[in-house]
Design a protein around this nucleic acid. Structure first.
Lengths: 119, 119
DNA sequence: TCGATATTTCGATATTTCTCGATATGTTGT
DNA sequence: ACAACATATCGAGAAATATCGAAATATCGA
């Protein structure tokens, strides 16, 4: 049964508990229409946001890309996002199963008192 | 246009991002039938779980109560729980508005791209 | 008021986290 | 092979965090 699994869920919350990561995650969830074009105006290299796009669109280069990279890894380790290589870029996306799981956590009546059902 | 307010939401997630706090919060959410009786078998002093009950029922005295107190304050500061004095005890409860807010965050389709939902 | 019980605050400490710049790795085009 | 670009890893420093025991505060009952 789909476990609530406190520790694993806590890892997800912890990942979302940093403002920088939460903004990244929201950005990826919403995955808006193409925001970043090349300086030459070319379309994005793939059908999803990339790391550079996150740096540029979400933070306007306020953060070092090593910092963004760190947070992306954190989000990935928490199971919240996926990263797929596409050429030179990494295409990012929010994991729908993670969203479903978190939604279930707050679904009133559902996850209450289920304690630990393990998988 | 108070926005989804990433920072404020992140504070909530951060509070839930610690396993100890997550367990406390789950316990308060579920607010199960009376678990702790006095050593004399008396009923609980109020109609909700107390700090001592959290220490005892949730952690079996594995954590110092100063530690639990610290985490309760953290949860309160994040807006996730309420604490009301009732005699010698503090009666604890999860805040339903916080639950609603977090549920809304994960509600598919709802909070996506809303960016600014005002309060 | 005094003692017992419940909870919080304080000080200290070990660990973790965020951030950066510098460097390394991987990929594409020439 | 090499240059250019995108991203990741490393090392380090500052700040935040979790935890505890000891002491302080608050409330009740005798």
């Amino acid at each position: 049964m789909i476990a609530v699994d406190h520790d694993e869920t806590a890892v997800m919350f912890k990942a979302l508990g940093d403002p920088t990561r939460l903004r990244i995650f929201q950005f990826l969830r919403c995955c808006p229409a193409p925001v970043a074009l090349d300086e030459e105006g070319q379309a994005r290299p793939a059908d999803g946001p990339t790391v550079g796009e996150v740096c540029c669109s979400v933070f306007g280069l306020d953060k070092a890309n090593s910092t963004i990279s760190f947070h992306l890894k954190e989000l990935r380790n928490a199971g919240l996002i996926q990263m797929e290589r596409r050429g030179k870029h990494m295409v990012l996306s929010a994991r729908r199963d993670a969203l479903a799981r978190l939604a279930a956590f707050f679904d009133p009546g559902a996850s209450c008192c289920s304690e630990d059902t393990q998988s």
